[in-house]
């Protein structure tokens, strides 16, 4: 429990930087407390500056304008509260069934573009699950990038879990298959499958991802139980396209939003949540093994305005 609280503090610290930059612009706007054109365009800029995207921003601002008119709101502070409500509403997506089905091992497939932080996130997620007394096995499915297997093995050592790996260049489907057999034999609660980074425009690589999914299904028809897309918070509008294409290749159950300890705000998740109904499940807030937490929509939005 203590550990959990401590982690929560760290996460808040990580979000502070996000908060301050988002805050300053908005505060000055709100301080004037006039709901005029300047305020609206300022609000628009604030959202766009947070990578929320033109379309989502326009929709939000339009909606707020409508509400402000209808509810005769004249105070900027009140509009800000309304904005918070709207943002929260977008993020409130029915949680997926993570952990509900009691099949073991629960298979978690981790996907994303190059450099988004898949392997690091897996290390942290493993630690997180292990802290809950779960037994975890890792599959080194990134057989393409130089030394990716070594990288996952180091994380495995740090956390103290088994890593199933083949040679570089091996078929990632085969790695996943073997890893499932091993995880099953060892009665692991979770099997987490790392995959190579791939840009969503690479058709062959997206097909490969589909194949990994099919192979895992041969072991357990209900797997993968969870497919998490790892998204770098610094990503701009392309994040939506990433989520779209990855979702086509393999049904996504959630996002891991990484590198939130920087100044980037990760606003593209609103567009993703809105269009694709993919919830954020975890956030990464640093390079340390404990810089990781379950996503809390309230905290996230509060963090932007606190």
């Amino acid at each position: 429990m203590f550990n959990f609280l401590k982690r929560k503090e760290q996460v808040k610290e990580g979000l502070t930087k996000t908060r301050t930059s988002f805050l300053t612009k908005l505060t000055s706007l709100v301080a004037k407390n006039d709901v005029n054109e300047e305020f609206w365009s300022g609000l628009e800029e604030t959202l766009i500056g947070a990578d929320v995207g033109v379309e989502t921003t326009m929709a939000l601002v339009d909606k707020l304008r409508g509400r402000a008119d209808k509810e005769r709101v004249r105070q900027a502070a009140q509009v800000q509260e309304m904005l918070k409500e709207e943002l929260l509403a977008i993020l409130r997506i029915q949680n997926s069934d993570f952990g509900i089905s009691n099949v073991t091992p629960q298979v978690i497939l981790v996907v994303g573009v190059n450099g988004s932080g898949k392997t690091t996130s897996i290390g942290k997620l493993t630690k997180y699950l292990k802290a809950q007394d779960k037994k975890v096995t890792l599959a080194a499915g990134d057989t393409f990038r130089a030394a990716a297997i070594d990288q996952l093995k180091i994380w495995g050592q740090r956390v103290g879990v088994d890593v199933v790996a083949h040679q570089p260049g091996a078929d990632p489907g085969a790695v996943a298959y073997d890893a499932w057999q091993a995880a099953n034999a060892r009665h692991a609660d979770y099997l987490i499958v790392d995959t190579a980074g791939r840009l969503q425009t690479k058709i062959n690589l997206m097909k490969e991802l589909e194949k990994i999914g099919r192979v895992i299904k041969k072991c357990d028809a209900t797997a993968p139980h969870e497919t998490l897309l790892v998204l770098d918070a610094v990503t701009g509008q392309n994040g939506l396209q990433q989520a779209r294409e990855f979702k086509k290749a393999t049904p996504l159950t959630g996002l891991i939003l990484t590198k939130l300890d920087g100044t980037a705000k990760g606003g593209i998740v609103f567009a993703i949540a809105k269009e694709l109904q993919v919830p954020i499940q975890y956030i990464g807030t640093g390079e340390g093994i404990d810089d990781f937490a379950e996503f809390d929509a309230q905290d996230f939005v509060d963090g932007l305005f606190a």
């Binding site: 766009i48 500056g49 947070a50 990578d51 573009v113 450099g115 770098d232 610094v234 990503t235 701009g236 509008q237 392309n238 994040g239 990433q242 920087g262 100044t263 980037a264 705000k265 606003g267 593209i268």
Partner: peptide, 12 residues
Amino acid sequence: VDAMTGQEAVRV
């Protein structure tokens, strides 16, 4: 610089 970077590119 990653071509996918968003608005924060400026500050970075």
